[in-house]
Each structure stands twice: as structure tokens, then as C-alpha cells.
Amino acid sequence: MTILLSIIVGLGLFFLVGFAGRTALQAAAPAHHKPMFREMPLTASFGLAVILFYVAVAILAPAIAPFGEGEVLGAQYLPWAAPHYLGTDKLGRDMLTRLIYGARNTVGIAFATTALAFVVGSVLGIWAALVGGRLDQFLSRFVDALMAIPALIFSLLLLTIFGTSVLTLILVIAAVDATRVYRLARSVAQGIVVMDYIEAARLRGEGIWRLIRREILPNAMAPLVAEFGLRFCFVFLSISALSFLGLGIKPPTADWGSMVRENATLITFGDITPLLPAGAIALLTVAVNFVVDWQLHRASGLKE
């Protein structure tokens, strides 16, 4: 009962912080940006509060975590009691500590991966649509070939070749995801490059980079932002799946996906500890999508 209560109180707290933050932003924002915050829905401010909280936890992890990340402190599967407020895992490491460090690893990697996939995928996709002809053929068929290989098998293959470090993990998942983003960005941009304003910009003598950045990208934002929200969540799944196969984040580094798996057996004894990292992922996913929805609403011009 107390757990349920604390969850409700926690969520309510995020809502309150979001509401207060929104009010503050409305007052403090420069005149130019004021309308953006005035129309911000409460869900978006809640999402923003959650994301900021996660970021703070990730940055401050060593300072706020009570113990070391990989430290074995005592018996395994200890119940929730001081000094291990959320108990310990199967090796006797402090759950709370690992949750806090997990934020740093999982969120950091997921964000870096998605961002990289989007930068690479959308720039290449728009470039292909803009230039067309042989470049488009070459890039698109190359991407088709990559997409023909099942994503998990392909990541396994690449990770086996290049070895498993956090950097290669990010690069490999980003490469796989970038193919999907490329497809989307190219098809959206193909509808845009035929517009008269692109012709006008070409005739003006604008370079490729300016055309992509200022003329096309702002008009392709809505579907890309929506896709970002979705991809970000799928990256958690990819990381967990790879970790499960032993090619993802290496122990003893904490990662929420692996933490669910390692402690899954506790569920059978009515202990909800393994649900905590899962809940952390779920909450972040919901928060990210709230913010994305808000941005999507703005970018698609639905406000008018």
C-alpha cells in the first residue's frame, strides 16, 4: 500500500514541479518565445520535469548514490530496509545505487544513439532526395541492403567484429536505426523538394547544406520529431536485448534492461523490486512522448 501511495505522490510531485516550472518559464521567457510556453500543455510540462529529473540524476550519480556502482555489500536479495532502501540484487549490490547509475548509462546511451541516428539518417535522406539521380540510387539501395538484414543479427555481427565497448554499441545501434530514419526523411523530403520555394532557393545559388538546413529540414520536422519519440524508446529494447546476449553493456556497469532480467525471479516471490527499473524506463518513455507530442503539435501547425 505504501508503495502505491509513494508512486502516486511521486507522480503528483512531477506534475506540481511541471506546473510551477511552466509558470516560471512563461514569466521568464523572452517575448519572442512566450507563445510557445503559453500554449504548453500540462502533460508536456510534466514530461519536461521528469526528463530534467532524470538528467540531474544521471549527471549527479556519483554524488547522490549511497554506494559504489559495482560494490558487493552484503547478502543477496536483501529486503527493503535501511541502509539498502530498495534492497540488494542477486550479487548483493545496492539496488538504489544501481538504479541511479543506470540512469546515467541507459539514458545517456539511448539519447546519444537516437540523436546520432537522426542526424546521420535525416541529413543523408534529405541529401538523397535533394540531389536525386545516381547519388539517391546509390544511397537508397545501400540502405535497402542494410535493412534486408534483420536488425538484431546485424548488430550482433557488427559488435562481434568491432568488439563491445559503449562507443561501438552506440555507433552500431545508431547505424541500424539511421537506415529507418533515412527512409522516412527521404520520403518526406521528396515531397518538399518539388516545391517552388526550393526551386527559388536553387536558382538563388544556395548551397546544398543551406538547402537542407534552412529550407527543407524545418518543413520536415513534424514527422521526424514523432519518429524520434518512438525510436528513443525502441533503443532501450535494443540495448536490453544486446545486454541479454552478453554483447551490450558489460557488467558490472548498471543498465536498467539487464537489471530487470537479473532480478526477474523475485517476481515469483511477490517482490516488486525488478519492476523498479522497468518502471523507470516506462516513466521516461511516457515523459519523452509527452514532450514530443507537444513539439509535434507545434511543428505541424495544428495550433492554427
Binding site: 517552388d196 520555394y197 536558382l203 538563388r204 524545418p218 518543413n219
Partner: peptide, 19 residues
């Protein structure tokens, strides 16, 4: 390029809606 400019029929598609 500067010397020769063009005005289009459909101003809706000739002006980038995001700028």
C-alpha cells in the same frame, strides 16, 4: 543568377512556410 529573378504563380508554394 542575381540579375534574373522569378515570381511564381502560387505564393503559397513559393514561400518557405517555416521562415
Amino acid at each position: 543568377l542575381r540579375q534574373c529573378q522569378m515570381i511564381y504563380q502560387m505564393a503559397d508554394t513559393a514561400l518557405n512556410p517555416k521562415l
